[in-house]
Amino acid sequence: MTQSPSHTLSGPGLYRRMAGASIVAQLRYPGTFVIQAIGNFVTTLLSFFGIWSLFHRFGSIAGWDIGTVAVLYGLVNVAFAVAETLGRGFEVFGGEYVRTGSFDRLLLRPRSTLLLLLGHELRLRPIGRFLQGLFVLVAGLWLAPHVQWSAVLVLPWAIAGGAAMFLGVLIGQAALCFITVEGLEVVNVLTYGGVEAGQYPLTMFGRWLRRFITFVLPLAAVCYYPTLFSLAHPDPLGMPTWIGALSPAAGFAFLGVMILAWNRAVAGYVSSGS
């Protein structure tokens, strides 16, 4: 396709083009893609089998029915899968951009660095986690008592908030790479560890952890409270149920804070050289 030099792509148009190229590239090796997606699906499905086994043996998950736990589990996994799909560029940022110095090249382009890094790769592999999460979520809605019609609106809203929050973590992790150069695996505590913590009801944790995943990382706001709202389940900790309809906004607020941090970090960037 030829284009006149004066013609420039808009931001979304550029992203579409980059994402399209990334998808074509990943489907070039269909065998690898299928194996990885199946591996991803099986891993996450088996991890729900673990929770189900606890339920099977003890009759409940600390007093919670399996339907509610399944909704929580599905919600956090779907949200994380979306963030993983979009945010691959931030995940590999330290090793592939800062250490090699190729971030300098991105800075020369007349587009936002965030957009360019989002376009690094639209990763298809998390589709395994996504489908499995969706499957468990639907099964949970089928099993749980008192499912509200409003769930049709609140759950997608919660997934969006959760995806924004996890994307925020990935951006924050990338911003840290300006200091640490290499990626810090400790941040996995917030991503994979967040998924692990988000799939259990908040009441199961001690106070310090509850506070952490409510106020530092707004995990409860994007999983626990929207689930309670969708299932009309009163909160044993005493929060009003309606809070769940609003709380996913906290995920977007978290993303906003991380973008601010990113912009500050970029402003202070010193290249590691070529």
Partner: peptide
């Protein structure tokens, strides 16, 4: 050290989950 922090996090989450499951039944 990074691995240690991650293992302690996962350990803590898992332990609290088991503790409340056991105490509830």
């Amino acid at each position: 050290v990074a691995g240690l922090v991650a293992q302690m996090w996962f350990g803590a989450v898992t332990l609290m989950a088991y503790a409340s499951v056991y105490h509830a039944a």
